[in-house]
């Protein structure tokens, strides 16, 4: 499947080029992978504290800035107590690898 159509109206997780993790419901997309996310929440990971969830609402994320889109298993996701999860944030995409 090289198509986002199957994810429409599903919960997805978007990882952006600057290393942010944004969860939301996919409402639309286009050829350039621009994405509409409804009810979106950013999960901010920190090495010494639990995950902070920041409500962002309705978003259009530009395709240029998207690294990964993945489907979320809502049940499994809800079974995780994110306030106990400590992790380093994801690094931004690096274009200068040799």
């Amino acid at each position: 499947m090289a198509n986002l159509q199957d994810y429409v109206d599903q919960h997805i997780s978007v990882i952006t080029n600057d290393g942010r993790v944004i969860i939301g419901v996919l409402k639309g997309y286009d050829q350039a992978t621009n994405i509409i996310l409804e009810h979106s929440v950013e999960r901010i990971f920190r090495p010494t504290e639990g995950v902070e969830s920041s409500e962002l609402g309705l978003h259009i994320i530009r395709g240029d800035n998207i690294a990964i889109v993945g489907q979320i298993d809502v049940e499994e996701d809800e079974s995780i107590d994110w306030s106990l999860v400590q992790a380093n944030p994801i690094l931004p995409v690096n274009y200068n690898l040799k």
């Binding site: 600057d18 409804e38 609402g57 309705l58 978003h59 259009i60 994320i61 530009r62 240029d64 800035n65």
Partner: peptide, 15 residues
């Protein structure tokens, strides 16, 4: 310019 945009945050009811 569109190409310089990372994301747009819009009011919930617009959808």
């Amino acid at each position: 310019r569109g190409s310089s945009i990372k994301y747009l945050r819009i009011q919930d009811d617009v959808i």
